[in-house]
Write a protein that binds this DNA or RNA. Structure first.
Length: 117
DNA sequence: CTGATGACTATAG
DNA sequence: CCTATAGCCATCA
């Protein structure tokens, strides 16, 4: 896979995170076929621009924390977007046990099929 | 080619 | 919970 394909895979999977749910960078990397490329996910999201229609705000680190500075515009935007979807954010953190996105096998296979086009 | 960088993660103390 | 450390890996200067 070249860079373009990897970026597309990442964006595709992030778009599939349902409103009110969250995923980790590592989880998206795994789903997108990047193995341990969690950092690559963060890098791609950083190029989106805060007003993107891509639900980048639903991606948190493995501890359920918002990794953008809480006092930054982007950080506040992320927190606001999450809360607007009913996600409880405390001190920039979310209870993964309550909001972690569980991807069904069907959904995973469909994603693979979609990317194979 | 080399070294630095980061919206990362797991583990140990 | 916090810090430190070590992997990780595409990208960029």
């Amino acid at each position: 896979m070249n860079r373009e394909q990897r970026e597309r895979a990442i964006i595709d999977w992030v778009r599939r995170i349902p409103a009110g749910k969250v995923a980790s960078y590592g989880q998206i990397a795994e789903l997108a076929g990047l193995g341990r490329g969690a950092r690559q996910v963060g890098r791609v999201l950083s190029t989106l621009g805060g007003h993107s229609d891509v639900p980048w705000h639903r991606v948190l680190n493995s501890r359920g924390e918002i990794r953008l500075a809480l006092d930054s515009d982007a950080g506040r935007r992320q927190r606001r977007r999450l809360r607007a979807e009913g996600v409880v954010v405390n001190r920039g953190r979310v209870r993964m046990a309550d909001y972690a996105w569980q991807v069904s096998l069907d959904e995973r296979l469909w994603g693979d099929f979609f990317r194979a086009e």
